[in-house]
């Protein structure tokens, strides 16, 4: 990544980001700072505004009010190519209109560096990205014929090949099997340790607990809590945010977040209002 490092790394700063669509406030005054070297995981129930926030962070979506700055410059004032040299994005859905080969899709990640000195690194970056996303063996396959998980990994390889110092990943693990979920997030952490800023939207709270430096819990379009996984992922907070009793247990040094379920045979109790207070280690 050092070959593509930029001079000013002041991270990504969102201030008072508000998004209103048709009179409905989807995001209300969200503040978020992501510094180089850290993995920030966004969690929250459906409709909490995670993807909208990510849209604002990528610059795709202009906030109704508030600002998003990357390295001290408003995201909206970057030219598309300059922004693409600073941040890469993995969307929830990776569509492809035509039957390109997986290798060609990964190569698309190098497009922002076309005719730049960094283009010399193209082959190395592509090979590296393919290896890290475990898609080297798929390189000659046609992208539309790959499985959902394979497509997601090829797209992740494209994002890595872009070689930017900011990664925004929207539910990157959704289509992946257990092995590749862990592998992908390990790569994300590795990127952060090498100086990148990484934002990941996740649904799996145990994954969030294991790989996040900081967790940002969104609910109803606002930040409910931000902090280290141990500070934020508490039974009380999660039960309240998700409207479902949640237990947080410690296993082999990691936090495990599990929803409280009724006896296996019976359906779960309709709505037990309070979470279990004592979270006992297994």
């Amino acid at each position: 990544m050092s070959a593509t490092s930029r001079t000013t790394d002041r991270g990504l700063v969102a201030r008072g980001v508000t998004v209103t669509v048709d009179g409905t406030t989807i995001l209300g005054g969200v503040d978020l700072t992501v510094l180089p070297g850290e993995v920030v995981v966004l969690v929250g129930p459906n409709g909490a505004g995670k993807s909208t926030l990510l849209g604002a962070l990528t610059g795709d979506l202009e906030p109704t009010s508030g600002s998003v700055e990357l390295d001290g410059v408003p995201v909206a004032s970057y030219r598309a190519r300059d922004l693409a040299r600073r941040r890469a994005v993995l969307l929830q859905q990776q569509r492809l209109a035509f039957g390109f080969r997986a290798r060609e899709v990964v190569e698309m990640g190098r497009a922002p560096w076309h005719r730049a000195p960094e283009a010399e690194d193209d082959l190395r970056m592509i090979a590296e990205a393919e290896a890290r996303a475990d898609v080297a063996h798929l390189a000659e396959r046609l992208y539309p014929t790959l499985s959902g998980g394979e497509q997601a990994r090829v797209s992740f390889a494209r994002v890595l090949a872009q070689g930017t110092r900011l990664l925004l990943l929207d539910e990157p693990t959704a289509a992946l099997d257990l092995q590749h979920q862990e592998a992908l997030l390990r790569v994300a952490v590795q990127e952060a340790r090498e100086g990148s800023a990484v934002v990941v939207v996740l649904h799996d709270l145990s994954l969030a607990a294991a790989y996040a430096d900081r967790v940002c819990v969104l609910a109803h379009g606002a930040v409910r809590a931000t902090g280290t996984p141990r500070e934020v992922l508490t039974p009380a907070l999660l039960s309240e945010v998700y409207h479902h009793p949640v237990d947080v247990v410690e296993h082999a040094g990691h936090l495990l977040v599990v929803p409280v379920r009724g006896p296996a045979s019976a359906p779960p109790a309709p709505s037990s209002p309070l979470p279990k207070e004592d979270s006992c280690p297994v």
Binding site: R87, V89, L91, A97, A111
Partner: peptide
């Protein structure tokens, strides 16, 4: 031609790899 290839990713992803869509 080169930029049109990137458009296959969809508008948003094409923008993310630097295309002024």
């Amino acid at each position: 031609a080169r930029q049109l290839d990137l458009l296959a990713l969809g508008d948003r992803a094409a923008r993310h790899v630097g295309v002024d869509v």
